[in-house]
Design a protein around this nucleic acid. Structure first.
Length: 466
RNA sequence: GGCGACGUGGCCAAGCGGUAAGGCAAGGGUCUGCAAAACCCUGAUCACGAGUUCGAAUCUCGUCGUCGCCUCCA
């Protein structure tokens, strides 16, 4: 089996071959930190975390870079509004995102570069582009000369002549062409700025990623990723800048995740139809969001809704149930059942890999895991003992952890609370022996109100947090 | 106007030419003091139309609908 990856550049799935055997360099565009991140940002980070985890599972050593854009118009605007320093504002939201990364069980990137820490290299690259006549300066601003880049538009399939000038932004007639984009912006009074050959200013949006990618990963990289809203202009422009300078293909595989939708539209800060990651995690487990992402194709839009959240919650519970121990009266399952268990373990393992190798088909991979879940539960029902269930359960744990699922219940337990619950369960078991059903049910109902679920079997009771 | 994606059972969703995975929900059972969980059973011909083919959800063309991008955007 060979891993196949959809490449936005060729619009096809291609066999995955890295620049260097056994190693993957991956650059993912991170958020612009002017406000709290929403679950759409989380989706993107989750998608690339899953991709990374699978690559590592496959034996690759992954060098993963995710940047923070920590200087831009919105950050400045917001900082002025709040009366704080823009750099500090960015710092605040970077820290918050770092925290979300932990909470969402996203593996930390190898490096988290920031635009403001790469200014000298950015200036250097802009200068070099100028020397090669790919850039020109006007009143302290520097623009990229799109016309000089003959294959401009190859990523997004746009032809420069078909693009509507000023569709959303006013046309700046100081530019040679409306297509030209800023590499360097002159500073207005009060804005954060750095010295440069063109006067005080700051980097344009696209140049930072070119510079940081080259600095941390080299002139050519294996995977460049981000949301598909970045295809044009951001990634198109990154290609233009980088390849014009190096003369080499920038990234081998351009990978883009679909947008998260909410109420029928793309979730975005400008529309305002967003759920922040903090809000989501206050009510739900991180695994639920991850399962939502896993349930659909990463390139397609995913609709966020209460229904889908509830469905993910239940599906997660089903997975956890498969990991529960044997029944207390287990005495060993039939040879036939054990063979079925063994077969399905192998089938699931193979099907999982096959699905993931096909451009990370996580929905199909999940399906294969659920097939094993059913067989495990059947075996348990057929009196399999723990040792018999163990290999298959370990397989479920292994595969779900490749997907980044924790499958643990929310950490509510202080040991004290656990002790009290166990005491209640123990007393209730005595009541059950005496068939005091009213009291028995009362305890169960009251605990349910506190978020604790009791499940009785003939002679034992297990409990868990809801 | 240009570029692109999508439309599969009540909901989410896989499928890439050979007669529809999986999850959620629902109904009926088994188990059980009851409940829950688990297990078993039940349900779709794939937006619409035409075409290619022995054969199409899967290929082609068209129609309708939804969405994304066209310099703020994960």
């Amino acid at each position: 089996m060979a891993l196949r990856v959809y490449n936005t550049l060729s619009r096809k799935k291609e066999t995955f071959e890295t620049l260097e055997e056994g190693k993957v360099s991956m650059y993912v565009c991170g958020p612009t930190v002017y406000d709290s991140a929403h679950v759409g940002h989380a989706m993107s980070s989750l998608v690339f975390d899953i991709i990374r985890r699978y690559l590592e599972f496959s034996g690759y050593e992954v060098r993963h870079v995710m940047n923070y854009t920590d200087v831009d118009d919105k950050i400045i605007e917001r900082a002025n509004h709040e009366g704080v320093d823009p750099i500090e504002l960015a710092e605040r939201y970077i820290n918050q995102y770092d925290q979300h990364v932990k909470e969402l069980n996203i593996l930390p990137a190898t490096v988290y570069p920031r635009a403001t820490e790469e200014i000298s290299r950015i200036v250097k690259m802009v200068q070099e582009l100028g020397e090669a006549e790919y850039a020109y300066a006007v009143d302290g601003d520097v623009y990229f000369r799109v016309e000089r880049d003959e294959d401009y538009g190859k990523l997004s399939g746009q032809k420069t002549e078909d693009m509507q000038a000023g569709a959303r932004l006013e046309v700046d007639d100081r530019k040679e062409s409306h297509m030209d984009f800023a590499l360097w912006k002159s500073a207005k009074p009060g804005e954060p700025s750095w010295e440069s050959p063109w006067g005080k200013g700051r980097p344009g949006w696209h140049i930072e990623c070119s510079v940081m990618s080259m600095h941390h990963l080299g002139e050519q990289i294996d995977i460049h990723g981000g949301g598909n809203d970045l295809v044009f202009p951001h990634h198109e422009n990154e290609i233009a800048q980088t390849e014009s300078l190096t003369g080499k293909p920038f990234a081998r595989y351009w990978m883009h995740n679909g947008m998260l939708r909410f109420a029928g539209e793309k979730m975005s800060k400008s529309i305002g139809n967003l759920i922040t990651i903090s809000d989501f995690l206050a009510e739900n487990e991180a695994d639920m969001l991850r399962l939502m992402v896993l349930s659909s194709n990463y390139r397609h839009p995913l609709t966020f809704s209460e229904d889908v959240i509830a469905q993910s919650k239940q599906a997660l519970e089903r997975m956890r149930a498969a990991l529960r121990p044997a029944f207390s009266d287990a005495k060993g399952a039939s040879a036939e059942k054990l063979q079925a268990l063994k077969d399905q373990k192998q089938n699931t393992h193979n099907a999982f890999k096959e699905a993931m190798e096909d451009d990370f088909n996580t929905a199909s991979a999940l399906g294969s895991i659920f097939d094993l879940v059913r067989i495990i539960n059947q075996a348990r029902d057929a009196k399999a003992i723990d040792e018999e269930l163990k290999p298959a359960q370990t397989e479920v744990r292994d595969l779900t952890s490749v997907l980044g699922l924790r499958l643990e219940h929310r950490e509510v337990q202080s040991s004290e609370v656990n002790g009290f619950v166990e005491l209640l369960v123990e007393i209730r078991e005595r009541l059950r022996e005496d068939k005091q059903w009213e009291l028995t049910d009362l305890v169960r109902d009251k605990l349910a109100e506190l978020g604790i679920v009791l499940e009785d079997t003939k002679d034992a009771t297990s409990w868990r947090w809801k």
